[in-house]
Design a protein around this nucleic acid. Structure first.
Length: 276
DNA sequence: GACAACCTGACC
DNA sequence: GGTCAGGTTGTC
């Protein structure tokens, strides 16, 4: 599900609600999702490994979330395709696919819900260090990468530009929705080889990616499929997709039919008139 | 760099 | 029955 705007929305909401909250226990319904500090799954049932931990800060790198405890320990979280983190939406206690429940001393609860179970919560003994390792592995986010650095990175690969911007080690935070929409806004064909882009096109692409990510943030994210925010509410970016998922619908610039393509195994949408 | 794998569910 | 799905990792 979630790309940078969705994960950032959740990060903000968790921060608003749960700074200084103290954990009393963690209910593990699927052990492989709540992973212990030795990188091994925990056991089924109530787990006391985080008892007494107090949330000091919640940060995000790309699509990863880091819950920092005042002890220096923490949780590294990735929601992958269908992960949700919701606060106090108590219907989640009994609904199918709730995998982990964290309970706080003030009676509040975080439910981790995930149909496909690709996501995880990793217990980290040093969360700052864990965050640093992820940060080092990932590329910069679109609003901080330098245009010439972006160009340099794109010139090193023979892949399509679509594949390249989805590569988190090249550029962090962009997923299939914002990649598809950003390429359309920049007027660049997703099938182009990344190393054929000129500096002027790279600049335009970076700006366009920033624009669509900011639009995603402003609308509370894309709830085309299963995404909901930390309050269980849907975003609205799906109502203004530029091309994502709009097979056969008219291009918002020229009115021509948008085409569906498969690039690097992922769905892609393109206006062959506007994207070159 | 291509492709399968990790899973479940929705849709044709 | 088959294909597709917002992501990442590990294999050839």
């Amino acid at each position: 599900m979630p790309e940078l705007p969705e994960v950032e929305t959740i990060r903000k909401q968790l921060s608003e609600q749960l700074i200084d909250a103290e954990i009393v226990d963690v209910e593990v319904r699927v052990p492989k999702i709540f992973v212990g500090p030795t990188s091994s799954p925990t056991t089924l049932g109530v787990n006391h490994i985080l008892d007494g931990e107090v949330i000091a800060k919640i940060s995000r790198v790309g699509k990863y979330l880091f819950i920092h405890f005042s002890s220096g320990r923490g949780l590294a979280i990735h929601l992958k395709m269908t992960g949700r983190l919701v606060i106090d939406v108590h219907t989640y206690a009994t609904v199918p696919h709730t995998r982990v429940v964290i309970t706080f001393k003030n009676k509040r609860k975080i439910y981790y819900w995930d149909t496909r179970m690709f996501g995880y919560l990793h217990v980290e003994s040093n969360i700052a260090e864990a965050e640093g390792i992820v940060k080092a592995k990932l590329g910069p986010e679109p609003w901080v990468i330098d245009d010439s650095e972006f160009l340099r990175r794109l010139q090193k690969t023979g892949r399509t530009i679509k594949d390249a911007i989805l590569d988190q080690s090249l550029l962090a935070g962009v997923g299939n929705i914002y990649a598809s929409d950003g390429l359309w806004l920049a007027g660049i064909d997703p099938r182009r080889k990344a190393n054929t882009l000129k500096l002027s096109e790279v600049k335009k692409l970076r700006m366009s990616l920033c624009t669509v990510l900011e639009r995603g943030l402003a609308t509370g994210g894309a709830s085309d499929n299963s995404y909901v925010d930390a309050y269980g509410k849907r975003g609205a970016y799906q109502n203004e997709f530029l091309v994502y998922g709009r097979t056969g619908e008219p291009c918002r610039k020229c009115g021509r039919e948008l085409k569906y393509l498969k690039i690097g195994g992922r769905g892609s949408w393109v206006c062959e008139n506007c994207q070159k």
